[in-house]
Amino acid sequence: MIGRLSRYLADIDNLTTVYAVVVVAVAAFGILLLVVSPLSYEEEQLYPKSIDPTSPLNPYERGGDPFNRTEVLAQYPENSPYLGYVTSYLTPLSAFFAATSPYMGTTILTHPGGIIDEILYNTRGLDTVAETSILFVAFAIASFLFRREEE
């Protein structure tokens, strides 16, 4: 039995199957756990989302004027002394659209500035650095293999 099992595990083609079994087991256990003793959703979240349907920047309206700060609930505000400036910033073009269109926030006009940029570039910048580095490494692998074929 153990011999059969170890032979099965040693075949690399079966590894995804084994991993899937583990994940399915954990997910099933998770459902069981959630039904028996439900977790509670923490109401005091960082960077809470608020929706103001009347604002042209909805759902990204977080208050503040360009070059002024707004209130942002970060984990360690003391580490980001200029917290809130990026959130309230609008480029002139997006300010123009915000003044003329009531649906600026839901268009694909993604200009620098806003709450997501605040998180991505400023407070959790290291996440984005890691993410772009992963893309960079993956792209390096793909382009290395591709260019080697061409030669």
Binding site: L46, A74, Q75, Y76, N79, S80, N122, T123, R124, G125, L126, D127
Partner: peptide, 13 residues
């Protein structure tokens, strides 16, 4: 053990 040095990057310390 006790941390002796922290390197803050915004929210990520």
């Amino acid at each position: 053990g006790e941390p002796f040095f922290a390197l803050p990057f915004g929210d990520i310390v």
